[in-house]
Structure formats: C-alpha cells, structure tokens
C-alpha cells in the first residue's frame, strides 16, 4: 500500500475550499466515499432481490419437507432467479466496502498495516462464500422439475454456507474493533464507538454457529438468533461503516489541506 503523503504537484490549497473534495492530493477521497456508498447499494439490492423477490423473508424453514422446498422454487422460478441475480450484484458491493475500510485502517499503522491486511483478507475470503451461496441457490432454481430431494440439498447447501461462514466475518469485525480501540496508533482514524460496535458485531454473529444442530427454534437457520440477528447485525454494521468511512475520508483530506496550508 502506498504511503499517503501529499503529492508534490498538489494544487495550492488556498485556491480550493477545504470542504470540497476537489484537488484531493491524490487521496481518492471521492472514490473512497463512493466505496462507502457501495454498502448502501448492497443493502438495497440484497434486501430487494435476494430476500424480498425470492420470498426468502421470512425464510423457508430448515424443517420444511423436500416437497415444500421444491414447490417454492417451482412456483416462483423466474422471480427467484431474478431476485438471486439482483442480490448477487448487491453482494458485489462488499469488495469495495472491505477495500476502503482497509485503506483507512492503513492510516493507523502506515508502516506495518497488519490488522488492515487481516481485515482485507477476511473480507475478501468471506465475500467468496456470500457469492458461492448465491450461485448454489441459482443452481437450485435452475431445474425446478428435478427430484425434490436434490433441490432441497442445494437449498440446504446454499443457506448453511451463507450463515456458517460467520467466523470469518466475526474475525473481520474483531480485527476492525481491536485496531480502532488500540491506543498506540499514528491516527485515531475511526471513532471509538465504531470499535466497540465492531466487537458487538463480532459477538452477535456467533449464535449462527449453532445452526447445524437445529431444524426448528431460534437457533435453526430461520430462527431469530441466526437469520434475523445475522442480517440485522450485518446491515447495521454496513450502515456504521458507511458513516465512519465518509467521515474518515473527509478528515484525511482536511488533514492534508491543513498540512499544506501550514507549509505555505
């Protein structure tokens, strides 16, 4: 990662108003803010497509019969396919969000951004499974006329894959939280409440790990402690990222504007 120093050919600061993101010292402030908005894009498309169009809200139960699952795919085939494809486009936003979180974390320890790296790798690794789960459900919707047991197997695979990957996301949140709460940083990039929020997120993903053991109740995948908790927490997490990334990117720019003004 490049060190973030003002480039030599940056425009003189007096010219551009400090609140503007123009003349951004090569900091890509606008791009960073756009990446934060990718989170909102993700929420809209995943909720609209992946959850509402597919009628996976509330979800099919883990205790539903193979026939019930197969019927769901057969009765709404094309809507489910469209919803999953739209949702897939939504999940794509996760990469941008993970990247910009890492770029800002880099400012905490510019020389050895270990935690930023772990965060980036966890986010990217988890992203694969968000995508894979969606692909598997698209396969489930691809031949609705096949034997119900096969559709059920694919459906199980997709849903379990979606939720059982929580340790990766938990770890990602934990790393962001620890990095934010550490005192020995070059800069306090994110506000401390965001650090505590990440620890909270990390803990709240854990109940999803109970899901292999249950077909009914709060710890089955359709239950309050898995489906509802995981989605609500995930979206809350993204909304918080959206808030802090924009603030951090603007503050970063401000810092450079002031540094340049001090030099002049």
């Amino acid at each position: 990662m490049s060190t973030l120093t003002p480039s030599a050919d940056a425009p003189p600061t007096g010219a551009s108003p400090p609140t503007s993101v123009q003349g951004s010292f090569g900091l890509s402030t606008r791009t960073q803010i756009a990446c934060a908005w990718a989170g909102i894009y993700l929420i809209v498309l995943v909720v609209g497509g992946w959850l509402v169009m597919t009628r996976f809200i509330p979800p099919m139960g883990a205790n539903d019969s193979a026939q019930q699952i197969a019927d769901h795919y057969r009765d709404n085939t094309d809507v489910i396919r469209a919803g999953l494809v739209i949702g897939f486009c939504g999940w794509a936003g996760w990469g941008a969000l993970t990247a910009v979180i890492a770029v800002q974390m880099n400012r905490m320890h510019p020389k050895r951004p270990v935690l930023a790296m772990i965060q980036l790798i966890s986010g990217a690794g988890g992203w694969i499974f968000l995508s894979a789960a969606t692909i598997i459900l698209i396969v489930a919707s691809f031949r609705p006329e096949r034997s119900p047991e096969l559709t059920q197997t694919l459906h199980d695979l997709g849903w379990i894959m979606l939720f059982i990957t929580v340790p990766i996301f938990s770890f990602q949140a934990l790393v962001i939280g620890v990095a934010t709460l550490k005192r020995d940083v070059a800069r306090q990039v994110y506000p401390r409440w965001f650090g505590f929020l990440n620890i909270w997120v990390a803990i709240l993903f854990v109940p999803a790990l109970f899901l292999p053991f249950f077909k009914t109740g709060p710890f089955s995948w359709q239950g309050a402690a898995v489906y509802w908790l995981a989605f609500v927490v995930f979206f809350t997490w993204i909304l918080a990222m959206w808030v802090v990334i924009r603030a951090a990117a603007k503050e970063e720019l401000q810092e450079h504007v002031e540094a340049a003004a001090a030099q002049a």
């Binding site: 505590f196 909270w200 402690a225």
Partner: peptide, 26 residues
C-alpha cells in the same frame, strides 16, 4: 468508562432482551 463502550453494553443488553423474549415465547 467511555461513551463508545455503551454502544457495546446497550447493544448486548438489547440482544439479551431478545433472548429473554425468545425464551418466554418458546
């Protein structure tokens, strides 16, 4: 402590509140 800590404390209390509700419903 500090203000941010209470995001975590109150968030945790909220989730346990959900757990208590789940218990009574079940």
């Amino acid at each position: 402590g500090e203000v941010g800590l209470w995001i975590f404390i109150l968030g945790d209390m909220l989730v346990f509140g959900l757990f208590f509700g789940i218990f009574i419903v079940q």
